[in-house]
Design a protein around this nucleic acid. Structure first.
Lengths: 113, 113
DNA sequence: CAGAATCCCCATAGATACTG
DNA sequence: CAGTATCTATGGGGATTCTG
């Protein structure tokens, strides 16, 4: 069932989307709640700078993983939401999250290899 | 079932291991065949430089994802193999690979969002 | 509110040459 | 065979300031 042929590796396709210091946490937020405003995301991820938040959102948008909706009003209102396509990343994020939990356990209990 | 709480994100744990330009392809090779010699890996991944191969292998080794075994002989023989722990990454790599295949289909057929 | 514009640092990764 | 050792370039990411 696991036909992971190294000659035919498509792992990088999704990796390229996920790589970026803040992308996983942005995606987790938008998977949990869409849409979210720029300021809501900023508040949810306090340590990110505005520049980085903007940049990572733009990248995800250009890959059609998220959508950006601008409301023509003052003050500006911009909402981000996950696309249907973006939702297909959920199994990957889930697998990674689950692995991360196990990994933490392991490093705490320091199981022998 | 999908308890992907953004407040409690463990996605980066595995991401940190997978990130590195050559790590996924190295892991796929060692998941398909272990052990492999340094030169076999080099041949399997022609575009990688020796320096990068060494570096990425060392990093994976320090994370206990792979094992390095040196044979005291001339010429030197060094074998790399995936650890049991490293094998737990397979579901993630599989999910990513599957996603990559779908992604390729999508970008070829240019489905509307 | 939601950014754009600058300036800056450093880690990643490539090329090349050398070696026990 | 399986690496080191250098040198260098690129760009990811951070801090700060400014703006429609």
């Amino acid at each position: 069932m696991t036909n992971l042929n190294p000659e035919f590796c498509e792992v990088n396709e999704s990796l390229e989307i996920l790589v970026g210091k803040w992308k996983p946490i942005i995606l987790l937020n938008l998977l949990a709640e869409s849409p979210m405003r720029f300021s809501e995301l900023k508040r949810a991820i306090p340590k990110i700078t505005q520049k980085m938040l903007t940049k990572q959102l733009r990248e995800l948008e250009s890959q059609e993983i998220i959508m950006r909706k601008v409301y023509a009003q003052v003050p500006p209102r911009v909402e981000y939401s996950i696309t249907e396509y973006g939702q297909t990343l959920r199994p990957i994020l889930n697998a990674m999250h689950q692995w991360g939990l196990k990994h933490k356990e392991r490093s705490i209990t320091k199981l022998p290899v």
